[in-house]
Write a protein that binds this DNA or RNA. Structure first.
Length: 200
DNA sequence: ACTGGGATTTTCT
DNA sequence: GAAAATCCCAGTG
């Protein structure tokens, strides 16, 4: 957290190979950047959730390794994208060292670049908030199963520090789960207009 | 403000 | 065959 040297630019491997709660906290205020054929998309993260290990009953790895969750068992700094509820994808950032399954779910962000392309991906123009919620964020960015397992230290899909000064950060329980509901592993930038749900 | 249900299909038991 | 780390809409109070 505060022990990190202040620097801007691409988040390198070391950023991800740390305890997941630290990574989750530090991801708030960082920029998600995706270079597509049609243009560049970016958004500043305002809401994330940590899913940590097989003992975390809400974590996909709680049932052991499967075809779907395999990248969570790999080294930190890779994308984990899964399909859910028959129609949505969710983007995670894998954390910690190889062999320990953990990731941070990206739940909300403020659009920065490529708003028109995001709107186009959405397919309609009646939405104002295109990236407040994990399913909506992936839809706006057009991220699908094909983007699962991407190295986030590369130059196609990555996170970077642009020197943004983060506002007050709040914590709460995680959204949309039935088990592990006691853990306060959701981090949000409190004054953001781009949260998927108000903090309790 | 709060509640409940429907959409839609992959994934794992 | 059931559940799912979601989202939106319609109904009620």
């Amino acid at each position: 957290m505060s022990s990190l040297i202040v620097s801007t630019g691409l988040l390198e491997r070391d950023f991800y190979l740390r305890p997941t709660l630290e990574v989750a906290h530090d991801l708030i205020g960082k920029y998600l950047v995706y270079k597509t054929e049609a243009g560049l998309l970016s958004a500043r993260l305002v809401e994330v959730e940590a899913y940590i290990g097989e003992d975390d009953l809400a974590c996909h790895a709680s049932v052991g390794i499967t075809k779907r969750n395999a990248v969570m068992y790999g080294m930190g700094g890779y994308s984990y994208i899964y399909f859910i509820y028959g129609m949505y994808y969710c983007l995670n950032v894998v954390t910690e060292d190889e062999g320990f399954p953990a990731a941070v779910l990206i739940r909300g962000a403020e659009p920065v670049e490529g708003m028109e392309l995001m709107r186009h991906h959405f397919g309609d123009d009646k939405h104002n908030l295109l990236t407040n919620g994990p399913g909506k964020l992936c839809k706006a960015f057009a991220l699908t199963r094909k983007e699962n397992g991407i190295d986030l230290t590369g130059n196609r899909l990555y996170l970077e520090d642009r020197g943004y000064k983060v506002g007050k950060i709040g914590r709460s329980t995680r959204i949309g789960i039935n088990k592990g509901i006691e853990k306060k592993w959701r981090f949000v930038e409190l004054n953001s207009q781009y949260l998927s749900a108000k903090i309790k």
